[in-house]
Design a protein around this nucleic acid. Structure first.
Length: 664
DNA sequence: ACTACAGGCGCG
DNA sequence: AAAGCGCGCCTGTAGT
C-alpha cells in the first residue's frame, strides 16, 4: 500500500514496465489492458490479451497468480510466469529495481498488485536534467517535454517507436511498440540514474519527488466532486447577469465595423449592393447589421476591401476600441503593446471606469465572461459521480512546482466558484495552507546567508521567530500601510521596478519612488539579499533549492544576448530559490499528508502550490485536522525554517478555507 | 478540421 | 526599446 523509497539503492539493474490500454473515457480510467512488457538489460518479457482484459481481471490474476501457477487451473499458458514475475518485481522480491515512465502505468498496476518501490524515469530525467539543460525555452508543451518520445529524440535513450494505430484493439504492432517502450524506459533509467547517484542533493530531491508523486497519483484518481445543483443555480444567475450586461452595452453601441481585422475582399458589384457610409468611430445602428463599409480597392482585380458590420462583441478588441471612442468622449487609444496593438486590459478599463459607466459595464462583462467560459462551463463535464479529473503534471515547470490541467484547479477564483467544490456524501472538505511560506524562506535565507549585523534586528526573520504578523511589522518599520507593504515586498524581491509599483499600488511616480526607497532603507536585509543573489547568479548558473533541486539558467553567463535577457535570468534565479524551495516544502507536506490520508481513509484532491485540499470521511475530519498540525507546523525541517499552517473543515472548499482563517 | 499566436486573466 | 516570477485556458484571428 505504501511504497518504501528508502529501498532505492545505487544500481543499474532496472526492469522497466510498460502497459498499453484503452482509456474508458476522458475521466482518467481505463477500459481494457492489451499488453504488458518488461525489459531488463538481459531479457524482455511480454504478455498480451487479444481481446483485452479489464483492470479487475488483472487484479484477480495478480492476486492469485502463484496459486494458479501451482494448481495449473488457468488458461494463461506459459504467460502465467510473466505475470508472476511482474507481481514479484513490483513487490520487491527480485534483484531488479522496477521503473516506469510517468504516473500512468504504476497508478493502474498499483490498483492490481502491491508496489513496494520503483522509480519514475520521467521524474528522474526532470531532476537530473532540468528543462533548460535539455534546451527547453518555455514555449513547448511542458507535458510532452519529458515524454519518452521526446527524451529519446534528444538522445537520452534509444528511439521509442511511433505507433500510428489506435489503442482500441490488439495488434502485433501494438505489442512491438509496447516492448520497445519498455526497452526505451530501461535505457533512460540507465542513462539518467548515474547522475543522480553521483549527487546526493539531486538524489534526495528525486526521492522527494517520487514521494510527492504518490500523492499526485492519489489526486488524479480521486477527482473532484462538483455540486451540480449549485452549479446550475450559479450558472443561470451568472448567465442572466451576463446577458443583461451585454444588452446594456448594445444599447449604447449596437453594431460595429471592426477596423482592427483584415478587410475582406469582395466583388465591386457585391460591395456596392451592400455598402453603407462609414460613421464616426465605426459605430453603426442595428439597421445596418450585415452591411459593408469600404476601406479600399484593388485596381487589377476590381475587388473592393470591406469590413462587415456586426453586432457589438466585447470579446473583440476592435469592437471595444469603437465602443470606448463612442461612449467615453474624447478617448483615444493611449497604451500600446510591444507588438503595436492597443492595450485594453484591466488597468486601462479600470481607469476609464472611474468616469464612464460604459467602462464599468465592460468590467462586469469581462468578469462574468471569465466565470462562465473558464469555470462554470467546463465544470459541467463530469463523470456519473459528478466528479472531474484534472491532471497535476510534475515536470511542467522550471521551478519544481506542480501544474494543473484539464481543467486547471490551481486558478479557481476565490469567490462563489469555490463553493461548488464539495465533498462526497458523508465526507467533509479539509484544507490547509503554508502560511507566508515564501517570506519564511526569504527570511531563512536572510538569516543564514547574510552577515549577522544585517540580518539581525530589523529582519523579517525576527518577526517570524516571534510569530508576529510579518506585514504589520514591516508596515511599522516603513511607516506605510500593511497592504501596500505586502504587495511592495513581493514586487521588490522579484525584481519589480518603481514603474511597476506605481501601477500596482496606484501611486504617483514620486510616491512610488519614496515607497521603494523606504523599503530599502528600513529593511536593509532586503537590498542585501538581492545583491547577494545577484552576486551568486554571476558566479554560478545552477541554483539549488533548500532541498537540493537543481534549476539552471544558461542565460546568466552568455554574452551574445541582449542585456535585458540577462537581467531577466537574474530575476528568475532569485525567484527560483524561493518558489523552488516552496515547492520542496509542499512536497514534503504532501508525502506526510498522503500517509495520513491512508490512515484516515481520506483523499488528497488538489494542490495549489502552498495549499492542500482533502476529502475526509465526516467522522475522521477533526482527527485528520489534528494530525495535519504537526505536518504544517514544522520546526525541524531545516534549523530556522519554521512553517505554519492551520487546517479548516467545511462542506465545500470555500467554507473550509473560511474555517481555517477563523481558527488562525 | 486543426494549429499557432496574441491579448487577457484566474491563481500562488 | 523591452524590466516581478511561475503556471493554464479562454477568445478571436489567421494560417494550413
Amino acid at each position: 500500500m505504501l511504497p518504501d523509497f528508502s529501498r532505492l539503492k545505487a544500481t543499474l539493474d532496472f526492469c522497466a514496465i510498460d502497459i498499453e490500454t484503452t482509456p474508458i473515457n476522458e475521466f482518467n480510467d481505463i477500459e481494457k489492458i492489451w499488453c504488458i512488457s518488461m525489459a531488463t538489460s538481459e531479457f524482455t518479457k511480454t504478455v498480451h490479451w487479444k481481446s483485452g482484459i479489464t483492470k479487475e481481471e488483472l487484479r484477480y490474476i495478480c492476486r492469485n497468480v502463484d496459486t494458479m501457477k501451482a494448481l495449473g487451473n488457468h488458461n494463461l499458458g506459459t504467460e502465467i510466469e510473466t505475470i508472476s514475475f511482474m507481481v514479484h518485481l513490483l513487490k520487491g522480491d527480485t534483484t531488479f529495481t522496477p521503473c516506469c515512465h510517468g504516473t500512468f502505468d504504476v497508478r493502474h498496476l498499483g490498483e492490481c498488485t502491491e508496489v513496494s518501490y520503483y522509480i519514475d524515469t520521467m521524474l528522474a530525467a526532470y531532476v537530473a536534467f532540468p528543462p533548460s539543460v535539455l534546451g527547453a525555452t518555455g514555449d513547448e508543451d511542458a507535458l510532452r517535454f519529458y515524454s519518452l518520445a521526446h527524451l529519446s529524440s534528444l538522445g537520452l535513450c534509444k528511439a521509442k517507436l511511433d505507433y500510428d494505430g489506435n489503442f482500441t484493439r490488439y495488434s502485433e504492432k501494438l505489442r512491438e511498440y509496447n516492448i520497445q517502450d519498455a526497452i526505451s524506459c530501461r535505457e533512460l533509467a540507465e542513462f539518467v540514474m548515474p547522475s543522480l547517484f553521483a549527487d546526493l542533493h539531486s538524489f534526495n530531491a528525486f526521492v522527494l519527488d517520487m514521494k510527492a508523486s504518490q500523492a499526485v497519483i492519489m489526486m488524479e484518481s480521486s477527482g473532484i466532486k462538483i455540486n451540480q445543483d449549485a452549479l446550475l443555480d450559479l450558472t443561470l444567475k451568472t448567465h442572466g447577469e451576463f446577458n443583461s450586461t451585454l444588452d446594456e452595452m448594445r444599447k449604447l453601441v449596437p453594431c460595429v465595423a471592426n477596423t482592427q481585422v483584415k478587410p475582406k475582399a469582395v466583388s465591386e458589384a457585391y460591395a456596392k449592393k451592400h455598402l453603407v457610409k462609414n460613421r464616426r468611430n465605426n459605430v453603426h445602428p442595428l439597421a445596418e447589421l450585415g452591411k459593408l463599409v469600404k476601406v479600399g480597392e484593388s485596381d487589377d482585380t476590381g475587388r473592393w476591401f470591406v469590413h462587415e458590420i456586426t453586432e457589438f462583441d466585447p470579446n473583440r478588441d476592435g469592437h471595444v476600441i469603437a465602443y470606448f471612442r463612442h461612449t467615453c468622449d474624447g478617448w483615444t487609444p493611449d497604451v500600446y503593446s510591444k507588438k503595436g496593438n492597443v492595450v485594453l486590459d484591466k488597468n486601462v478599463v479600470n481607469k476609464l471606469a472611474f468616469e464612464y459607466p460604459s467602462a464599468q459595464l465592460l468590467q462586469r462583462y469581462r468578469i462574468l465572461e471569465k466565470l462562465l467560459s473558464t469555470y462554470l462551463k467546463p465544470y459541467q463535464r463530469t463523470d456519473k459521480e459528478g466528479r472531474i479529473y484534472p491532471s497535476f503534471p510534475m515536470c511542467a515547470t522550471r521551478t519544481g512546482r506542480l501544474a494543473s490541467r484539464k481543467p486547471n484547479f490551481q486558478n479557481v477564483p476565490r469567490g462563489d466558484i469555490r463553493k461548488l467544490i464539495v465533498a462526497a456524501e458523508k465526507h467533509k472538505i479539509v484544507c490547509v495552507d503554508l502560511s507566508q511560506i515564501e517570506l519564511r524562506i526569504l527570511a531563512y535565507d536572510m538569516a543564514t546567508m547574510l552577515p549577522s549585523h544585517v540580518a539581525s534586528k530589523d529582519s523579517m526573520w525576527i518577526a517570524f521567530a516571534k510569530d508576529a504578523d510579518i506585514h504589520a511589522e514591516n508596515a511599522k518599520l516603513t511607516g506605510k500601510e500593511r497592504k501596500a507593504v505586502k504587495v511592495g515586498i513581493f514586487l521588490y524581491i522579484y525584481g519589480g521596478t518603481v514603474n511597476r509599483m506605481e501601477k500596482s499600488l496606484h501611486m504617483s511616480k514620486a510616491e512610488a519612488k519614496d515607497f521603494f526607497d523606504a523599503l530599502e532603507a528600513k529593511i536593509p536585509a532586503l537590498p542585501a539579499i538581492k545583491r547577494l543573489m545577484n552576486k551568486r547568479a554571476e558566479l554560478e548558473k545552477t541554483l539549488r533549492t533548500v532541498y537540493g533541486h537543481k534549476i539552471v539558467y544558461p542565460d546568466l553567463h552568455r554574452d551574445d544576448i541582449p542585456k535585458w535577457r540577462i537581467a531577466k535570468a537574474r530575476r528568475q534565479y532569485f525567484n527560483a530559490r524561493i518558489q523552488g524551495s516552496q515547492a520542496d516544502i509542499i512536497k514534503l507536506c504532501m508525502w506526510a499528508s498522503y500517509k495520513l490520508c491512508l490512515k484516515y481513509g481520506a483523499s488528497m484532491l488538489i494542490q495549489v502550490h502552498d495549499e492542500l485540499v482533502f476529502e475526509v470521511p465526516e467522522a475522521n475530519a477533526a482527527l485528520f485536522c489534528d494530525a495535519l498540525l504537526p505536518v504544517f507546523n514544522n520546526t525541524k525541517l531545516l534549523p530556522g525554517l519554521n512553517t505554519k499552517g492551520t487546517p479548516g473543515i467545511g462542506n465545500n472548499w470555500y467554507e473550509a478555507k473560511e474555517d481555517a482563517e477563523n481558527r488562525e
